[in-house]
Every structure is written in C-alpha cells, then in structure tokens.
Amino acid sequence: MSYVKPAEVLESMIDSGQAKAETSAVQMVTRGFLGGAILAFATTLAYTATQQTGIGLAGALVFPVGFAIIVLLGLELVTGSFALIPLAAMKRRTTFGRMLAAFGWAIAGHLLGCAFYAALYCLVITKMGTDMSNPLIQTIVQASESKTAAYRQMGGEGMALVVLKAVLCNWMVTLGAVMAMTSKSTGGKIAAMWLPILIFFAQGFEHAVVNMFVIPAGMMLGANVGFADWWLWNQLPVLLGNLLGGLVFTGVMLYLSHASKREPEYLTAVSKGVKASEEPV
C-alpha cells in the first residue's frame, strides 16, 4: 500500500520543516529561483489554456503541473514552507531565527526566478518588443492591475480583502504540500497534491509567488501599476495572509488533529500559561 497515515504525515511535515530550515542560503536561493520560475511557467500555461478555450477552469486544471514539478524535485515554495518550518520550530527541531532566514532566502530566490522568467516571457509574447497584439499581453496587464489598483481603490476594505484571499489561498496550497506526503508513489503524490492547488487557482485567490511573476510582468508590459502598488497593496499583505493561512489552518490544525498525546510539549506549555519568552520557538 502506498497510502501514508495522517500521524506519519505529521512526522514527515516536521522532518521536512527541519530540513528546510537547515538548508544553506545558497541552496535555498537556488531552489527558490527554480521554484519561482517553474510556478511562473505554470501560470502562463494556465493563462494560455484559459485564453484558448475561453473557460477559466481549463487554466485551473493545468496550473498544478508546476506545483507537482516543484514538489517532486525537492525545490522550494515558501508558501508551502509556511506550514512546515513553524511546526519544526514549535517542536524545537529548529530555531525561530533559522525559520525566518529560510523564509527570507526563499523569497529572494522567488523574486529572482519570477523576474527572470517574466523578462524572457515578455520578450517572447511581444516578439522582442515589436508586436503588442498577443491577447495574453492584455490578460497579464489586467491581472496585474486587478491585483493592485483594484484593492487600492477600495481602501481599508481592499486591504482586508486581499489578506483574506491570501489566507484562503495558502490554506489550499499548504494542503497540497501535505497531500503529497500521503502517498509513497509518484503517481499518488501527483494526484493528491493536484486537488487543493486546482481549488485555489480556480477561485482567484492570492498567492504570493504567483504574484511575484504576474505583477512585475504586467508592469513590464505597460500596466498602470507602481512599485508601491505592488508591495503595499499586494505582495506584503499577501505574504502575511499566506503565512496565516498555512500556519494556522494547515500546520497548527493538523498538528492538533494528529499529534501524539504522549508529547504535547507546546500545547502543555501554553495551557499552563508559560510566558511567551519561555515558549519553544
């Protein structure tokens, strides 16, 4: 049988979080670069499928191919790590400092990988800047503006909305990372992780790494989006929402669901009112 039981999956989550936290900066940036670029490939594939068929769900059906490649090759997607590394820190298998460093290096890699692919892709669809007739150009420009200016125009409600969409997104994305651990076969891993990723993409939720490609690409193609729009009205709140969604709804809740009763160190400490400075990180 290739199925892995939930309690074993939880141990794999903690082991994976520890391994990620201990990865060197060079490796984390490199894995993040590749992960960001591959997810950007998948995003343009999804946009192409939607444009060719006129059916949004067609794009969502093919988008998870990028996530599957990233997971199977052991590359990095910081949004998935938002559920894994904090568990390792909670179990004292790594430190809070290493967790933040891993997140930071992964994000740096994603930004480089997404920007690299965005530059090359924009050259391709504009035929080296000579032809702006490709319908995908307008698709990316509109997506870039809807992910930034549209929220800005709503003000405080827009900020709340983008965070909520990011929370819902990474609830599913981190489930995809975990679902890959429920099988020992390659086919089983792909099928299991495909489902949550399809769910998030089909509903237009906000994913930080996808946006590291879409928004800069839109800016390169002439979108009415500034650097402040990108970071203040999307990238930073989306990173926050992705962190909350992955940490709370996947990491903590699966831990509460399946942790062994014999070693509830963190929960025991909290229940006894241990000071925050004394809690394991």
Rank of each mutant, 00 (worst) to 15 (best):
179 M>T: 04
244 L>P: 04
218 G>H: 07
160 A>D: 08
211 N>M: 09
160 A>Y: 10
219 M>Q: 04
215 I>D: 03
201 F>I: 14
164 L>D: 11
216 P>I: 08
194 W>C: 08
164 L>Y: 12
206 E>S: 11
216 P>F: 02
203 Q>N: 15
198 L>G: 08
233 W>E: 01
168 L>C: 10
160 A>Q: 07
170 N>F: 00
217 A>T: 04
206 E>F: 11
212 M>V: 05
161 L>N: 13
195 L>H: 13
222 G>C: 06
244 L>M: 13
162 V>D: 02
189 K>I: 07
176 G>S: 06
212 M>Q: 00
212 M>N: 02
208 A>I: 10
206 E>M: 09
174 T>C: 14
228 A>Q: 13
173 V>P: 00
192 A>E: 04
174 T>R: 10
244 L>A: 06
194 W>L: 08
160 A>R: 12
171 W>T: 01
191 A>P: 09
244 L>R: 11
170 N>Q: 03
229 D>Q: 05
165 K>Q: 13
236 L>Q: 09
159 M>I: 15
215 I>S: 05
187 G>F: 14
192 A>I: 02
204 G>M: 08
208 A>S: 15
244 L>G: 08
201 F>Y: 15
241 G>K: 02
176 G>D: 01
225 V>E: 03
229 D>E: 06
196 P>A: 09
206 E>N: 15
196 P>R: 06
228 A>H: 14
163 V>N: 06
202 A>F: 04
193 M>W: 07
190 I>H: 07
194 W>A: 03
226 G>R: 10
208 A>W: 00
167 V>Q: 06
237 P>I: 06
231 W>A: 11
177 A>P: 02
184 K>V: 11
176 G>R: 01
185 S>I: 10
238 V>H: 01
199 I>R: 11
173 V>I: 03
229 D>W: 05
244 L>K: 11
170 N>Y: 00
181 M>F: 10
178 V>Y: 00
201 F>M: 14
235 Q>R: 13
183 S>I: 06
227 F>L: 15
160 A>T: 12
220 M>N: 06
219 M>A: 12
